[in-house]
């Protein structure tokens, strides 16, 4: 039956692209949930712009994954017809929006990574990935700027905003380790010059973060226990609900054009 999940032949390169595509889609989806509900109209505009950038990145990466796989999957099948266990995003991006501080801390953690990541990927040996990186690095650089300015204001704003921001940092910190993890398949791609080793970015990521968090008069947790699982489809409970919404049309009306 057409509502069934598609099967994806997850060769290392397909899986690699899917993981980045899922990161972008799920985070874009989360940010799109703010549209119409942000703390001020100016921020509705900003969050929607970021969401649109991320959804755009996801589409390119899904299309690349589908083409690399070489079956009859496409961006929509990959987005709408994989179940929660087939999704490959990091746990960080699926965490609920929470309050504005939680959304902004999630943005800061992710974009500080994505900024470095896409800048490095511009030199990928795969020309499509390099082209996607060339566009994404500019977008991510702005996302980082946007999140940083907010974190500084929330941290150094009122007692309440400071407490909320610190609370969000504590809450989300354990989800950051996964961004730097690498498995054997990825190691081979790194060796081949197609992917970059995210582990090499962690030092600079931490430096960027420390500067911003410091300016915001906030603190990074000492705890270094990190949650893992998203990359292999072991998610938090939140993702299933997100997908049931995201995929509801394709699941209810299988196989139709919209």
């Amino acid at each position: 039956m057409a509502t069934a999940n598609i099967q994806v032949s997850e060769t290392p390169l397909v899986l690699y692209a899917l993981r980045r595509a899922d990161d972008a889609l799920i985070l874009g989806h989360r940010l799109s949930e703010w549209c119409g509900h942000a703390p001020m109209l100016e921020e509705d505009m900003a969050l929607s712009n970021i969401a649109l950038d991320l959804i755009g990145q996801a589409r390119e990466l899904y299309t690349f994954a589908a083409r690399t796989e070489g079956k009859d999957n496409d961006e929509d099948k990959l987005a709408y017809l994989r179940d929660v266990r087939q999704y490959r995003n990091v746990l960080l991006v699926e965490q609920p929006n929470g309050d504005f501080a939680q959304t902004m801390v999630r943005q800061l953690f992710y974009s500080a990574f994505a900024d470095l990541y896409w800048r490095a990927m511009v030199n990928s040996g795969d020309t499509t990935l390099a082209a996607i990186a060339a566009r994404s690095e500019k977008e991510s650089a702005y996302h980082l700027r946007h999140a940083s300015e907010w974190i500084i204001r929330l941290g150094d704003g009122t007692d309440e905003s400071h407490a909320r921001a610190q609370n969000a940092i504590e809450h989300l910190w354990a989800f950051t380790g996964e961004m730097f993890a690498v498995d054997d398949g990825e190691r081979a791609l790194i060796h081949a010059g197609i992917a970059i080793d995210p582990g090499t970015l962690r030092g600079r990521w931490l430096t960027t973060l420390s500067e911003i968090i410091g300016e915001a008069t906030l603190q990074l947790p000492q705890n270094d226990w990190m949650q893992q699982g998203g990359r292999s489809g072991r998610h938090s409970e939140h993702l299933g609900h997100l997908l049931s919404e995201l995929q509801s049309m394709q699941r209810t009306f299988p196989g139709l054009a919209w």
């Binding site: 001020m40 100016e42 505009m45 900003a46 712009n49 702005y142 700027r145 300015e149 204001r153």
Partner: peptide, 16 residues
Amino acid sequence: LHASDATMALQAARDI
């Protein structure tokens, strides 16, 4: 537009 300070105003101007 409305913004609390110049930096935020510049960002908002870009986004709007």
